[in-house]
Design a protein around this nucleic acid. Structure first.
Length: 269
DNA sequence: CTGACATCCTGACGGC
DNA sequence: TGCCGTCAGGATGTCA
């Protein structure tokens, strides 16, 4: 389940491999829900274009495209739950559930594979800035302002991409544990000290996960097919019923914001 | 507007 | 061994 660190790892990996490449041909699968922009427009925009740069905004991978006409566009790739972006030689068999293939001038292909089809491909003509605030660079003061007056649970607020983008279930649980905050606590009722701890915890955990190449729970594989190692450092995520590493209390599983949530009833208050 | 919740989709996993 | 039910969850759309 790719979140910010995994998406950044993939974006960086793809950038290193395909930056500067010209797109000769584009193939799309015809599965309608995968394409937020009509397939014909995606094919039209990308064909003959050059990939100027690939990077991350929120959980979205952005490829800056210089079109053959000279104008610019952005190819937006959201991996959803199970999306992968692979750079392969054209001779390598195309995996099941491949939905888009960009054939590059040097004979390789950039392939979008997504079994569960929660991923989305689209074209943006305007600069894409993402739906919310960028968690890796936001100041503690601006971060605190995001939650003022909000009645939803802090965990749900962290998951809401329009508030802060890039955080998903893993890093929401992990940062709340490290900040010692109950996931169900109302966002607007966090104290300044708690907001400060949460800001620090979130930035620390994201930076650390990016350094390790993201988490790899089951579906995520980076552009090389190499898995990340942050999952070895999960303190709560996916550890329901196991003992807290800090206090040996049994970790509790609840549902918050419709998502499975694991926390330590002793360490998080 | 804000928040809660169902929905999409396939594969992995556990139980019998 | 194999079948079947359950679960996983990001973003969107609907509803109160």
């Amino acid at each position: 389940m790719p979140e910010l660190p995994e998406v950044e790892t993939v974006a960086n990996g793809v950038d290193a491999r395909v930056r500067g490449q010209r797109i000769l041909r584009v193939w799309t699968s015809g599965k309608p829900q995968t394409f937020k922009t009509p397939e014909a427009e995606i094919v039209e925009t990308l064909t003959g274009g050059r990939i100027a740069r690939v990077y991350r905004v929120g959980k979205t991978i952005v490829a800056d495209i210089t079109e053959s006409s000279g104008s610019t566009a952005q190819f937006l790739i959201h991996l959803g739950m199970t999306g992968r972006l692979l750079v392969s030689q054209a001779e390598v068999p195309v995996p099941l559930h491949t939905h888009c293939i960009l054939s590059l001038a040097d004979g390789r292909e950039l392939r979008f594979v997504d079994p569960r089809r929660f991923g989305r491909l689209s074209i943006a003509k305007e600069l894409y800035l993402g739906p919310g605030a960028e968690p890796t660079t936001i100041s503690a003061a601006d971060f605190a302002k995001l939650f003022k007056g909000r009645k939803l649970a802090i965990k749900a607020a962290l998951l809401s991409q329009t508030i802060v983008h890039g955080v998903g279930n893993i890093y929401a649980d992990e940062s709340l544990f490290r900040a010692g905050i109950r996931p169900r606590k109302q966002a607007g009722r966090l104290t300044n000290a708690e907001l400060h701890r949460l800001h620090a915890a979130l930035q620390t955990v994201l930076a650390h996960a990016i350094k390790l190449g993201g988490s790899s729970v089951s579906d995520y594989v980076d552009a090389d097919g190499i898995r990340g190692f942050f999952q070895l450092e999960h303190k709560v995520y996916s550890r329901a019923g196991q003992l807290c590493h800090d206090c040996q209390t049994s970790l509790k599983k609840i549902i918050v914001g419709g998502r499975t949530t694991i926390y330590c009833p002793t360490c998080q208050n």
